[in-house]
Amino acid sequence: MPGEHNTPRSAWAERSASLLDACAAAGAVRPGLDPADVIQLMGFLWRVSDDPRGRAQADRLLDLAIDALRPR
């Protein structure tokens, strides 16, 4: 798409890809993760309620998400 590389969204995706590549090279995450998938996965953090129950749920979901990113 023309001009796509000038959007904040594409810059964010490029930076995320660089970070994921560095993490994969260090063995911290599994290789081949799609930055758009990881960003979408982490989007749940904005959807939990801001109360003790929501924060507990966010902790559980974040543990689950991080576990999914780890090398297999």
Rank of each mutant, 00 (worst) to 15 (best):
M1W: 03
P2E: 10
G3Y: 00
E4L: 08
P8V: 02
P8N: 02
R9C: 06
A11N: 15
A17N: 09
A17M: 09
A17W: 00
S18Y: 05
S18D: 10
L19S: 13
L20K: 12
A22S: 15
A22R: 14
C23G: 01
A24R: 02
A24N: 04
A25R: 04
A26L: 03
A28E: 10
R30Q: 09
P31I: 03
P31Y: 05
G32H: 11
L33E: 08
L33H: 08
D34Q: 09
D34W: 01
A36M: 12
A36K: 14
D37K: 08
D37W: 06
V38L: 06
V38H: 14
L41S: 02
M42A: 14
M42T: 13
F44E: 04
F44H: 06
L45I: 10
L45P: 15
L45H: 13
W46I: 02
R47V: 00
V48K: 12
V48Y: 08
V48H: 07
D50V: 08
D51M: 11
D51R: 13
P52A: 15
P52L: 13
P52V: 09
P52D: 15
P52Y: 15
G54H: 05
A56I: 07
Q57T: 15
A58K: 02
R60E: 10
L62P: 06
L64M: 04
A65I: 04
I66E: 12
I66K: 12
I66G: 12
A68N: 09
A68M: 03
L69W: 01
R70P: 05
R70V: 00
R70G: 04
R70T: 06
P71C: 05
P71F: 01
R72F: 02
R72D: 03
